[in-house]
Structures are given as structure tokens and as C-alpha cells.
């Protein structure tokens, strides 16, 4: 949580003003746009909470080998369906006696890895397509945007499943599939913004000075697109984690015995009678992760672009 007592999460400016004076006295750069954005972000209590939880989840994934009480693949038939808090199983054991807590920790590694890597693919593709379409306009724009429109017509889960089923499921293929089916919205946002930016004086000046198109895009347009890219990146992690859970739940994602939060729910319904906790915990973790990144993304949007408040 934010250490500063914010008056209301939805009203960052009043909460931020008292701090401004104090910071101004000690640091001449206190009013830099990034610092102001950071202040607006942390005044947003839910965003700050989301950031803390996201960091804890990432740390737990990185430290899984140290934190996990048992080997996540260790089968122990005698312990099957051990309820939580019994027999040394903090969160219980699954249908073949594997420790649920250890599996959840290791599953987090896979789910978060897919989330971050797919986000990287999405941001790369979305940024390139958005900037190129917006900057060049004309025919490249028309072609790229019609492709974007066409892909947006397919419900995401349908696309994900077809690709996962045909290309085959591996960590890499799942990541690429999620990344390559979710770049369209970012591309559209950046394309529209670039259309406006490229007419700005500083871009025209760069052009007059003989800057190459590539230089104009990389040095002028890209830095000015960082705010929407950062927001989209954060929200995309949330969406990618969710997407992975959907395809893994339906059996076309991460394959057992490797655990992801999605595939741990794969057979959960068959064990409702004996062990409902098997179905409970992975879902709670997915929700927690996705909500945290969503809150961070929303906070970033408010902080980086105060005009576009929702």
C-alpha cells in the first residue's frame, strides 16, 4: 500500500500537492513528468496495492525452488487428496499426492513467464505495426489496418485454440500464439496517435533536417508513444496470463506433468467430491495475478495521461 495517506484513491491531485513542496526543496528535478506520474500512480491506492502484490507474485515464482516445501512432481499415492493443513501439506495434496503448494509455486513460474514473454511479443508486433501504419499512411496503412480489423473479428479464444491445437503446445508456441493474437488493439491505438504526431513540428523539423524515416520513427515517434505502450504492456500481461489459463484448462496449452495454473484446473471438476481445494487455489491465484496487473495498468493509464481519466 502507499505509505502516504491518500485522501481518496480516485482523487490523486489533492493527495499529491502537499508532497510537492517537500520534494521541491530537496530535489530540483522533483517536478519531472515521470516523477509526477509516479506520484499520481502511488496516490492510487489500488494501483499501488496491485504493484506490491504483482512484485510478491513474481518473487514467489523466481524463488519457487527455495520456497516449495516438496518436489512439485513427487507422486505419493498414499497422500492423495490430503486436505489442506494435514500431513505436512499446507494447501493439501492432489489426486496423486503431489503437494499443491509446491505445484502452485512452480505453476506460477510458467504462467508468469508466458504472461511476460507473450506481452513482449505483443508489444513488439503491436508497436511496429502501429508506428509503421501511422507513419507511412497510404497503402501500407490500409493493408495493415485491414489485417488488424480482420483479426479482431475472430473471438480470441477461438483463434488461440485453433493455433494451439494445430501448431502443437510447448512453452514457446503458447507464448508466440498468445502474443501474436493480441497485438491488434495496441497497433490501432499507436497508429491513430502516430497519424497525429507525424504532423507535429518537431517531426517536420527532423524531416527538414534530413532525418531518415527510421530515425524519425525510432527517435521521435517511439519515445512519444511510451505512455500507451507501457499501459498496454501491463494490461497485456494480465490478458496473457488469463489466455494461458483458458487454453491450458481446455487441454491445448501447457501439457502435464508440468504445471500451470490453467492446467491444474484441467481435471479439477472430477475431484469435486473428494478434494474441492484442488480447484479452488489455482483459480484464486489466477484471479489475484490478473487483477493485480489490471489495477497496475489502470493506475498507469491515469498516472501517465491525466486527461484520459476513466
Amino acid at each position: 500500500m502507499a505509505t502516504k495517506p491518500a485522501s481518496a484513491a480516485t482523487a490523486p491531485p489533492p493527495a499529491a500537492i502537499p508532497a510537492t513542496d517537500a520534494l521541491l526543496r530537496t530535489d530540483a528535478r522533483a517536478a519531472s513528468p515521470w516523477r509526477m506520474a509516479a506520484r499520481r500512480f502511488f496516490a492510487h491506492r489500488l494501483a499501488a496495492a496491485g504493484l506490491v502484490i504483482s512484485i510478491l507474485l513474481i518473487l514467489s515464482a523466481i524463488l519457487a525452488p527455495a520456497l516449495a516445501p516438496r518436489d512439485p512432481l513427487q507422486i505419493s499415492i498414499l497422500d492423495k487428496f490430503q486436505p489442506p493443513l494435514t500431513g505436512g501439506f499446507l494447501l493439501g495434496a492432489d489426486e496423486v499426492g503431489r503437494d499443491l503448494l509446491s505445484r502452485l509455486l512452480y505453476a506460477g513460474r510458467i504462467s508468469l513467464l508466458v504472461g511476460f514473454a507473450a506481452m513482449a511479443v505483443t508489444v513488439l508486433v503491436g508497436t511496429v505495426i502501429g508506428l509503421v501504419a501511422g507513419f507511412y499512411g497510404g497503402r501500407p496503412d490500409a493493408i495493415l489496418m485491414r489485417l488488424t480489423d480482420a483479426l479482431l473479428c475472430f473471438p480470441t479464444v477461438f483463434l488461440l485454440l485453433v493455433l494451439a491445437a494445430f501448431v502443437g503446445a510447448s512453452l514457446l508456441s503458447i507464448t508466440l500464439i498468445i502474443g501474436l493474437t493480441s497485438w491488434m488493439e495496441l497497433a490501432r491505438i499507436l497508429r491513430n496517435q502516430t497519424l497525429a504526431l507525424r504532423e507535429q513540428d518537431y517531426v517536420q523539423a527532423g524531416r527538414a533536417l534530413g532525418a531518415s524515416n527510421r530515425r524519425l520513427i525510432v527517435r521521435h515517434l517511439l519515445p512519444n508513444s511510451l505512455a500507451p505502450i507501457m499501459v498496454a504492456a501491463t494490461l497485456n500481461i494480465a490478458n496473457a496470463v488469463l489466455a494461458e489459463s483458458y487454453i491450458s484448462y481446455l487441454g491445448y496449452g501447457i501439457q502435464p506433468p508440468a504445471a500451470s495454473w490453467g492446467n491444474m484446473l484441467n481435471n479439477a471438476q472430477s475431484y469435486f467430491q473428494n478434494a474441492p481445494w484442488i480447484a479452488l487455489f489455482p483459480g484464486v491465484l489466477i484471479t489475484l495475478t490478473v487483477a493485480s496487473f489490471n489495477f497496475v495498468g489502470d493506475g498507469l493509464r491515469d498516472a501517465l495521461d491525466p486527461r484520459a481519466r476513466r
Binding site: A9, T10, L46, A238, L242, S245, Y246, Y249, L250, G262, L265, A268, Q269, F272, Q273, P276, A279, L280, P282, G283, I286, T287, V290, A291, N294, F295, D298
Partner: peptide, 28 residues
């Protein structure tokens, strides 16, 4: 405030898991 938080959480719940929980509680 509650509706805002609730909406964000609802957007983050995996539909299939929520369905499973509903089946467990209300059907099973």
C-alpha cells in the same frame, strides 16, 4: 468504490473457474 473494485475483479476472474465454483457450490 465497491462497484469499481468488483468490476475489476470480475474482469480478472477466469470464466471457466468461476463456472466450476458455481457448479461446486450450487449444483454439487
Amino acid at each position: 468504490y465497491l462497484a469499481t473494485i468488483g468490476a475489476m475483479v470480475a474482469l480478472s476472474v477466469p470464466t471457466f473457474w468461476f463456472g466450476l465454483m458455481v457448479i461446486f457450490v450450487f449444483a454439487e
